Amino acid sequence: MVGLCGSILANNSSGNSTDEAAKTVEGPTDPQSLASALPAVEDTSFGDLNSYKTLDESEFKKIMHPSGNLAEYPYPYVGSRVVLYGKVDELPSGYETATGGTYFDATVSWHDLGPIVSWSLNSVDVPIIGLRSDLGDVEPGSNLAIYAEVRRPFLTGSKVFDSALRKPFLVAHTVRVIR
Rank of each mutant, 00 (worst) to 15 (best):
103 Y>G: 09
78 V>R: 02
3 G>Y: 14
165 L>T: 10
18 T>G: 14
138 V>F: 02
95 Y>E: 12
23 K>F: 11
168 P>N: 01
120 S>R: 00
152 R>F: 09
63 I>T: 03
46 F>K: 10
21 A>P: 10
50 N>H: 04
101 G>S: 07
109 S>Y: 14
50 N>V: 12
134 D>E: 05
54 T>S: 15
96 E>N: 10
151 R>M: 08
159 K>M: 11
178 I>T: 06
34 L>P: 01
145 A>P: 10
81 R>A: 04
153 P>H: 11
31 P>H: 11
104 F>N: 07
98 A>C: 05
27 G>K: 04
100 G>F: 13
28 P>R: 09
138 V>S: 00
7 S>P: 02
173 H>R: 10
110 W>V: 07
125 D>A: 09
53 K>I: 14
144 L>D: 09
133 S>F: 00
94 G>F: 03
170 L>P: 10
145 A>V: 09
163 S>W: 01
64 M>R: 07
139 E>T: 01
166 R>I: 02
98 A>R: 12
60 F>T: 00
131 L>A: 14
12 N>K: 11
112 D>M: 04
40 A>F: 08
177 V>D: 13
2 V>Q: 00
71 A>E: 14
71 A>Y: 11
57 E>Y: 07
141 G>C: 12
23 K>L: 05
132 R>V: 01
66 P>A: 08
129 I>Q: 11
111 H>P: 03
30 D>G: 12
86 G>E: 07
36 S>V: 08
71 A>S: 15
99 T>C: 10
54 T>F: 08
74 P>Y: 08
42 E>D: 13
126 V>K: 09
63 I>L: 11
113 L>P: 07
92 P>C: 00
43 D>S: 02
19 D>T: 05
24 T>F: 03
29 T>E: 14
102 T>W: 04
121 L>R: 00
100 G>Y: 11
6 G>P: 02
129 I>L: 06
179 R>Q: 15
136 G>E: 12
76 P>Q: 10
27 G>I: 06
122 N>K: 13
43 D>P: 06
125 D>T: 06
43 D>F: 07
41 V>I: 11
93 S>H: 07
91 L>V: 05
155 L>A: 12
118 S>Q: 15
125 D>I: 05
39 P>E: 15
175 V>L: 04
157 G>W: 04
150 V>S: 01
37 A>V: 00
36 S>T: 03
43 D>K: 13
4 L>N: 09
140 P>V: 03
144 L>H: 01
8 I>Q: 04
15 G>A: 15
72 E>W: 03
99 T>S: 13
145 A>C: 04
152 R>W: 07
47 G>A: 15
170 L>C: 06
40 A>C: 15
122 N>W: 09
15 G>W: 05
112 D>Y: 13
146 I>N: 00
168 P>S: 15
156 T>A: 00
86 G>V: 01
60 F>P: 08
98 A>H: 04
95 Y>I: 06
102 T>F: 03
175 V>Y: 02
19 D>Y: 15
106 A>S: 14
68 G>E: 06
114 G>T: 03
19 D>I: 09
12 N>H: 15
14 S>R: 11
69 N>P: 03
2 V>C: 03
91 L>T: 02
101 G>N: 06
